[in-house]
Amino acid sequence: MDQLLAPLFSFLLLYKYVALFIIIFVGNIIFLIPSNIFILMAGVFSGTAYFNFYWSLLIIVIGNSAGDYLIYTLTKKNSAWLGCRLRNKKAPYFQRLENFMKSAAGRTIIISRVTGAFSIIVNFLAGISKISWWKFLFYDVVGNFLVTLILMYIGFVVGGTWEQASDTVNTVGSIVGVLMLAFFVYKAVANNKK
């Protein structure tokens, strides 16, 4: 992991806040970059006073929310076409998921922020379900703020032993992500049987 991410860590140290924004923003659009690790690293760098804690927090929340909002906007703008395609293929299942998303948007969006890469799925579902702009933005910013604060704080405290902490953060994120996916599947299937 460290070897694969090393060029990005260097990029972060060289270009500081600009790099932080780019990494977090891109990481929220594509699955490949584990943005949670970079949030943790921002905390580590803040602990050594190389980064400013509050600026990093602000930039990460903006970068995260901008990335989320882009996915949400793209899917919402194309929701008629996407929804039509999905409904035609998996009609009842997709409809149940859409209804669930509409009824529990806030909780789902906030919890999904912990999962890192998995949150893309929720952004996609929120866009297709046509959750209102303000509702999505509110829960997204609040969720991103809370998760960023916790992760940066962990990085701030653990300092030099961040690698062990990043393993734990990844594991927790993956477990929540998998549970969330399982819950979505359960919701779609269980409701369908009624």
Partner: peptide, 23 residues
């Protein structure tokens, strides 16, 4: 200071000299 202070053995190849000088 933070619980886990950086030591020379914790430095990595991706670190910049500016960062090393600082920490």
């Amino acid at each position: 200071r933070p619980l886990a202070l950086p030591t020379p053995s914790t430095i990595a190849v991706w670190m910049t000299f500016d960062y090393l000088n600082k920490i």
